[in-house]
Each structure stands twice: as C-alpha cells, then as structure tokens.
Design a protein around this nucleic acid. Structure first.
Lengths: 197, 197
DNA sequence: GTCTATAATTCGATAGAC
DNA sequence: GTCTATCGAATTATAGAC
C-alpha cells in the first residue's frame, strides 16, 4: 500500500503541523494521527523537516496561486478582480481555518519559504491588476493599503478568533454566523476601499 | 544580585520566547541571551513552562488592560474611546512589534491562558463603552464587527508583514512609513466604521 | 546565589528482521 | 513496505561543591 500510506502520513502531518506548528509537533504525533508506524515516516519522507517543507510549500501555493491567477485575468475589471480574489480567499480559509495562523506563524523567521520561490514579486508587479490600479491613479502605497485592508477583513477574524470569542462570548455557531455575515458585506467593503480615489 | 539576575532572565526570556515561541525556544538560548548560567533559570523560575507562563500573563495583561481601562473611562464619548484605544494599541505594538504574532500563535491551543483569567468578559459587557454602543442602536454583532475591523486595521499589517513585504518589496524604512501613514488615517477609519449606523 | 557536572527524559532517526 | 528495537543527540532539570 505504498502511495496510500504516503497520503495518510501527509494528511496527518497537515493536520498536526497546522495545529501545533513545526517545533511543537512530534513525529510520534503524526504517526499516531496517521495510524502508521513511526519508522514509516522516515521511510517515505526522510525527515520531519522535509515532510514539513512539502506541506508548507503546498499551503503557500494554495494561497499565492489565488492572488496570481486573479491578478492576470484580463476579462475582469479591477473591482471584479478584487471581488473574485476575496471570494476565493474566503472559500479557501473557510475550508482550512488554521491556514492563516499556521503560515504566518511559521514563516516568521523561516523566510526561506517566502524568498520568492514562487516568483510572486515579478508576476504581480507586471500583472494586469497592477496596471489597472495605476491606470486609476492609485499610488503604490494606496494599493498596499487596499490589499492589506481587504485581506485583513477576511483573514483577521480567523487569526484573532481566540481573543474575541472570549471577549464577545462566541461559540462555534455564533462564529460561523459572524463570518457568513461578513462575507455578505465584502462587495460594500471593496467599494469603500476603492472609493477613496 | 538576586532581583537583578531575575530581571535579566525575564527580559531575555521575553525576547527569545516572543521571537521563537515556546516550543522552539531552548532554555540555553535564554541563558545565553541573559548572560547567566543555565542553572539559574531553574533556580529562579523552577521550569521553562513557569517562566513562559509568567511572561505570557504579563503580555496578555498589557493587551487587555488597554481595552478595559478605555472602555470604562466615562469622560470620553464613544468616538473618543475608540480613538484613544486605537492610539494606545498602536503605541504598544509599535514598541513591541512581535507581540501580536506571539500571543496569537501561542494562545492557539493553550486556551488555559485566555479562559477569563482577567474577568474581561464581565468587565467589558458591563462597561461604559458597551452602554454607549447600545445607546446608539448598535447590535452585538455590529459591535463585534467594528472592534474586529478596528483592531485588524492596526494589528494585521504587523502580522502579515512577511507576506506583503515580499509582495510589495518593502524594506524596513518603507514599512515604517507605511505604518506611520496608516496611523494618521485612524480617525477617518473609525468614523467610517461608525458611520454605517 | 552561582557554578560545574550530570542525571533523566524526550525525540528524531535508523538498523535489521520479516 | 512494514515492523520492533534501539541508538544517539539534544534538552530540561537537578545535585552538590563553592
């Protein structure tokens, strides 16, 4: 059962790494979660670090691919691009809520991962989206603000969830409703971000 | 030099824990940073975990105390409260930029820390700020949105810094300017958040 | 209070049988 | 490919001299 075992390990590793981070995760935790023998982890993936790298790369790909594919879709206006981007992000994160915290925590320091393995810097700066932004008279800094405020609107509630679920006494259901209602307001949010110009 | 050594260890531990997190930090790192003998760490704080707990509690106190003290200052209008809150947060985080990431990463799972050690839930729900919100006709959910959007505006740029400094090619100076310019727009931001009503 | 030396444990990784 | 057994390194914590 070669390939099947490999997948079991990878899925288990995703789960454990995302919830505990690299340093706090023990290979024994992953083996138990995958219900496989500890030695098989090294047999398939050589080391804890390599297994982690594979998962981190895949997760980063998930995140950046959304940005890049949208930024270069010439059939969309700027507002449509941002709306599509926001929608897809909301979907990805709703499906894997630990993703933002995981990536942002683990990247802190291990910059090796972000140092343009994906060619983002280039492919974004030359993207259709950027041309549209500049065409409308936005400065580099205004663009950065719009992107940060838009992504923050979507991502920050997940990241800060433990803080304000205590403050506002939210259970799981209340949090779901909260997130869903925020989603409905994304178009208004985007318009108000663009309106400044 | 009892108390002095104790402080040196605590300061070193703050620095190392905040930058690497609990699991990735070795007591040897702390001892080296503090320039003390490794054994003294256990002499003063008994264990790595206890030292960590003390620091995390103090950091959480820093964060929540800002909220609570503002929420109960009856001399301020709601807008003034939010403005004061935002200002103080911006100051705290500008001074300790690793704080948000540290707390949000480490709290994930170790909910022991947040389970209302501070009585926040109560003292906030009965606060002057909440009364003012309700008096203006805001619902619980609208309040949560305002708070999340305001804190996100301030905190999210720090948390997501590694991502978009790559995307937007920001160096240290550019990041500082970016943050400072965002600070100037906090009043407008608060007004637009409140305006919805 | 501070140091050296070391005990005790945890954990990643591998050898080797099946 | 999978398992058991174990090694070896790293790391927390402590005993005991000064």
């Amino acid at each position: 059962m070669g390939i099947e075992t490999e997948m079991k390990i990878k899925e288990a590793a995703k789960k454990v790494f995302r919830s505990k981070g690299f340093a706090a995760t023990r290979t024994r935790d992953i083996a138990e979660e995958a219900q496989i023998n500890l030695a098989l982890l090294n047999y398939y993936f050589k080391s804890k670090q390599q297994l982690f790298n594979i998962i981190m790369m895949e997760d980063l790909e998930d995140i950046f691919q959304v940005i890049i594919s949208n930024a270069n879709d010439k059939s969309l206006s700027l507002r449509e691009k941002l709306f599509s981007l926001a929608e897809k992000y909301a979907d990805v994160i709703a499906e894997k809520p630990e993703l933002p915290n995981f990536i942002l925590s683990e990247v802190h320091g291990n910059h090796e991962f972000l140092l343009d393995h994906f060619g983002i810097k280039e492919s974004l700066s030359k993207s259709d989206m950027m041309a549209q932004f500049f065409g409308l008279g936005f400065s580099q800094e205004e663009i950065a603000n719009i992107v940060v405020n838009l992504l923050g609107y979507i991502i920050f509630p997940y990241i800060s969830r433990p803080m304000y679920t205590v403050i506002f006494n939210m259970d799981e259901d209340a949090f779901s409703r909260f997130i869903n209602n925020r989603r409905k307001q994304i178009p208004e949010w985007i318009d108000s971000l663009l309106q400044k110009k």
